[in-house]
Lab assay of single mutants.
Amino acid sequence: MGFKLLSKLLVYLTASIMAIASPLAFSVDSSGEYPTVSEIPVGEVRLYQIADGVWSHIATQSFDGAVYPSNGLIVRDGDELLLIDTAWGAKNTAALLAEIEKQIGLPVTRAVSTHFHDDRVGGVDVLRAAGVATYASPSTRRLAEVEGNEIPTHSLEGLSSSGDAVRFGPVELFYPGAAHSTDNLIVYVPSASVLYGGCAIYELSRTSAGNVADADLAEWPTSIERIQQHYPEAQFVIPGHGLPGGLDLLKHTTNVVKAHTNRSVVE
């Protein structure tokens, strides 16, 4: 069995187990497998329904001669939608809004960016022009300005110390501490036991640490421990890039980060 097929099978099995364990909360999309990078042309966006009122959005972007996937989250909030992270750029984010209108038909009224990198804030200006209120932590807003990236308009308070959590509509926002970046936030959907790890969490097929220019490698494993301790009931975990899975993604990420750190020390 090929690795790609095995990865998709694991996603399907995880979703099936969740649907059985929580039949009222989960209505997993039966329309197909989780979209992969090879299936999404740059400039297009796919939506994948995880649970009743919960979707991931998947886009792709060219970077350094390669094409990478990027995940975000959409959560229903009454007759409105909360968006977590842009679709990595203005063109993708405009396509995301169009796809949401086509498939869901509810307005996106608020959006949260989970850290300051372009795959999370690139497209904020498109959201703002569409009347979406954009939010991020003060740290993310400051770092985005320093980096020359787009800056969300509103500040999220109460997320300055490791372990801080605040309720934001249908989700809980959690600051686990520094990891992929010093400002990275985690998003949890309690009604569906869905954990969105953003770039602080890796997919299972990833074996290298990737972009760690703004990471705190020493603190990252401790931050992941905080996530595990705060959300032990999480059933569906979405990484910032690639295929979702279960809580095993947290341990896998820790292993990859520690291996990278150990290699760096040896070198």
Rank of each mutant, 00 (worst) to 15 (best):
V108M: 05
W220Y: 11
Y231I: 01
T14S: 11
T222A: 09
P176I: 06
V108R: 00
L159Q: 14
F116D: 01
H252K: 05
E157P: 09
L6W: 09
A90C: 08
L173D: 02
E145K: 14
Y135K: 03
L82I: 13
S30Q: 08
L13Y: 13
W88S: 06
T153C: 06
R46Q: 04
S70E: 09
I201Y: 00
S70R: 00
P41C: 13
T207A: 07
T14I: 09
T109D: 08
W220F: 01
L82Y: 04
S27F: 10
Y12E: 06
F168P: 02
H154T: 00
D164A: 10
A213K: 15
V37L: 06
A209S: 13
G72N: 05
I224F: 10
T114E: 00
S208M: 11
L96K: 00
L10K: 06
F26G: 07
S208V: 12
I238M: 15
T14R: 08
L249Y: 05
G105K: 14
S137I: 05
I201M: 14
G2E: 09
E150N: 02
E203C: 02
A178M: 04
A129P: 01
S160R: 08
L127P: 00
V54H: 14
N184Q: 12
S30I: 07
E44S: 06
K91Q: 14
A90D: 15
A59T: 06
S16P: 04
A66L: 05
A192L: 09
R76I: 07
D52Q: 12
G78L: 08
V124C: 03
I224T: 03
A98V: 14
A200W: 02
V67S: 04
F26H: 00
G158L: 10
S38F: 12
D79S: 14
R110M: 14
V126T: 15
K251D: 06
Y68W: 04
G131T: 08
V166Q: 07
G177N: 15
L73G: 06
P107I: 15
Y12P: 09
A179S: 14
A98H: 15
G72K: 01
V28T: 03
G123H: 15
E233A: 05
H115G: 00
L5Y: 12
S191D: 15
T253S: 13
A178R: 07
W55E: 06
R167T: 10
G177Y: 10
W88C: 01
E145R: 10
Q229D: 15
A15F: 05
S161Y: 04
I227T: 04
A178W: 10
W88Y: 04
G65A: 04
V265Y: 02
G123I: 01
G78W: 03
I20N: 11
A144R: 10
L247P: 02
S139Q: 06
E233R: 06
H180M: 01
A130R: 05
L217D: 01
K251M: 08
I151D: 15
V146H: 06
S27N: 11
K8M: 12
G32C: 01
N211R: 08
A87H: 00
L247R: 08
L247D: 02
R167G: 08
S139I: 02
E219T: 10
A178N: 04
A200M: 06
A165E: 09
Y188I: 07
I40Q: 05
T153R: 12
K4N: 09
G177P: 01
V212H: 14
R76W: 12
E39I: 12
I104W: 09
L250T: 13
R226V: 13
D125C: 01
S193T: 04
T114D: 00
T134Y: 12
I50C: 02
I238D: 04
L250D: 01
A59H: 07
A87P: 06
N71L: 06
S113N: 15
R76P: 11
G198F: 01
K91C: 07
K4C: 04
V266S: 07
R141Y: 14
S113K: 00
D118K: 04
A129N: 15
